[in-house]
Nucleic acid binder design. Structure first.
Lengths: 177, 177
DNA sequence: ACCTGAACACCGTTCAAGT
DNA sequence: ACCTGAACACCGTTCAAGT
């Protein structure tokens, strides 16, 4: 496997999925790729940029899109997209932290987030309002994932619901209402 | 200044407020207190517990409470409390991360979060629903603070609104509706 | 152009030994 | 009981030097 931007990012994604962010260090990454740490810095500028690329790779997948035509109303599509995001991020340790870095650095590069916004516009919100609404929903998705992952990590009994879906429905109702 | 749990936590709060989480290391904390690093571990179990204590100190202050009698409806009190939280956390670098650790470890120890929940109950939500609603609102407060702080850190022009208040109003409307 | 080797300036945590 | 000194096993980033 030749060392390129692509292989570096892909290996980073694998480490994140299997072991979480704490194990995703530049040194661990170098070891996995059988190179010295310094070599990585020829292919990525720094760790922050690497994480942003990891987030993009995680989110920019067709599975995390929704076909608006399949739903009776834009609000229903929004609900379904948010649920997809939540379920996709839940099994990836520390995914909220990674996504947050990325959504700050490259606000308009994450496709599911963009679709969330455009669906809100379809639902009748102004351009600015749909930006704000997207924030509210993304905050809820990431916050709920983080909350649940924290419970697992502190091995609290987490059989009880986190109320993600209930909160989501109320939020969407508030936005659409 | 004698080395006690209290002085350790207080100094940690100061470092966090002045320099952010990146500078709040056990070693830096020890230097500030003129002791060796190991000494800290006599007074706090580990860094995670220290951060939880820091979060409690930040949030458990009378300024972050609201007198329900001052508002026409419980929903208005909820709005005001959430705004207070947002404004208090905004100037403290990386506060959302710190609060998240704490709210996972000791779910029921952070007073403003508890009041948020009880106000939602006053607004007519069931006990479970007010737990969920509290999550939605806390997610939005912390997410909005994190988003805004990230912009500043990457020095993007952050004069534009983050839509916190707009999203908050919609969320509360959805919860109360 | 791409990588190694080595350094710089850090981390959190533990623990024998001192007082 | 409380603290020092020192170690263990790590970090991210940089950069001369090699190929």
């Amino acid at each position: 496997m030749a060392l390129t931007q692509l292989t570096v990012v892909d290996t980073a994604v694998e480490i994140l999925q299997q072991f979480g962010l704490a194990d995703l260090s530049m040194r661990r990454l170098a070891k996995e790729l059988d190179v010295q740490v310094g070599a990585l810095y020829w292919h990525v500028k720094n760790k922050q940029e690497l994480l942003a690329a990891v987030a993009a790779k995680l989110l920019n997948t067709p599975e995390l899109a929704v076909r608006a035509e399949d739903f009776a109303t834009p609000a229903d599509a929004v609900l379904q997209l948010a649920r997809k995001l939540y379920l996709a991020l839940l099994p990836i340790q520390d995914s909220p932290e990674v996504i947050e870095v990325a959504s700050a650095m490259q606000a308009g590069q994450l496709q599911p987030v963009l679709q969330l916004r455009s669906l809100l516009q379809d639902a009748g919100l102004s351009e600015e309002q749909s930006r704000f609404g997207q924030q509210l929903l993304l905050n809820h998705v990431l916050g709920s994932v983080a909350y649940r992952q924290n419970l697992v990590q502190l091995d609290v009994d987490s059989s009880e619901s986190d109320g993600f879906d209930w909160g989501l429905q109320r939020a969407v109702a508030g936005l659409a209402g």
